[in-house]
Design a protein around this nucleic acid. Sequence first.
DNA 1: TCTGGGGTCCTAGGACCC
DNA 2: TCTGGGGTCCTAGGACCC
Length: 420
Amino acid sequence: MIALVDCNNFYASCERVFNPALRNRPVVVLSNNDGCVIARSAETKALGIKMGAPYFMIKEQVKQHNIAVFSSNYTLYGDMSNRVMKTLAEFTPNLEVYSIDESFLDLGHFYNKNLHQYAQEIKDTILSWTGIPVGIGVAKTKTLAKIANRLAKKSSKAMGILVLQEPRHIEVALKRTAVEDIWGIGRQHAKLLKSHNIATAYDLARQSDAWVRKNLTVVGLRMVKELRGEPCLDLEKISPAKQNICTSRSFGRPVKALSDLQEATALYASKCAYKLRKQGSCASVVSVFITTNSFADTKQYYNSKTIHIPTPTNSDLHLIQYANLALSSIYEEGYIYKKCGVIVSDLAPETALQLDLFDGPETGKHKDLMHTLDNLNKRYGQAIVKSAAQGSNKASWLLRKEHISPCYTTRLSDVITARL
DNA sequence: TCTGGGGTCCTAGGACCC
DNA sequence: TCTGGGGTCCTAGGACCC
């Protein structure tokens, strides 16, 4: 049996843990740049505020209902996530951390009747050790565990825990799950299924393999088999290295000048380099994209450029250099830019590098330099040492974060950086 | 004034090989 | 009258996830 443990309203719950005055107050957490709603407490949901709603369009309700508003604070949420996952790991070593607020746990060796009780123990422990409320769904496959988890949260009787084991219980659960609420069915497939009069998970599970394969590809077929109780998706205990890494942001204000874009590109390139070093990879391809604001009624422009790097690298300095080369080939004057980003791909382990015959001696030195830089930044706070190309911490194009909470759980230097 | 930021996998079609 | 049969690799685009 597999359990899916999912934190309730995760970001909103994190803000609440350290601020008891928020207990019964509606809370929202905003996306980067304070753009739109990405987490809501139960009270906020009850007020009818939708996921993804632009902040500027709900300001009236915020005032009216005294909603507590927070900019996203990923340092805090990341740390709280680690605490939750570490607590879960006490219950079984066989777990897959699926996202910042979800884990699959292998409960294979537990006896049937104790499953509900065991799930209750997990739920209580997470709450008392971390302050985060969770919901737990237990079933034979990941897809069914997802369904159980969703119903556990919806039903007041379930109190956040649902074990799907008896065939008749599974049948009821499938009949109560609309196709668009199945894990793996998005907007397009939901539309297609409905046009064929397939409305619930129960209906879908009864379609023929051939029909599912043809209309939903092999991915859909695996999912349908899981609905029928046949496990097709393994627990991924070790997360595989990423194949692409992207760092992109919207700007805090409209940007016209090449020099601002250069600073932003350098900053994102260095973030990509850091992420590469963290997973022990080097990249041999770097892409840069820039775009205007598609919501604005102004001249639109989007372009991207991909550059192949002669020797795979994870050095800030190399990536900044190539990223800016790419940027200068696509920059056009006269547009108002909203966002840019850097993507590195064609990743390989840094231990298996193919060196370029014509590399100078400085290539090896980059490794030591970056190692030192990472150590300094770890010790004294983010980006205490960096390439001058990245500009200042006070650049006017940086993200807006007007409602940021303190980083309650992490170092002082992070608090300073977050405020900057 | 104001609308996020990351990822993965699959398929179809074209270019190329023998 | 008639124009083979098999592969691989790459890319763009579309679907999905949190």
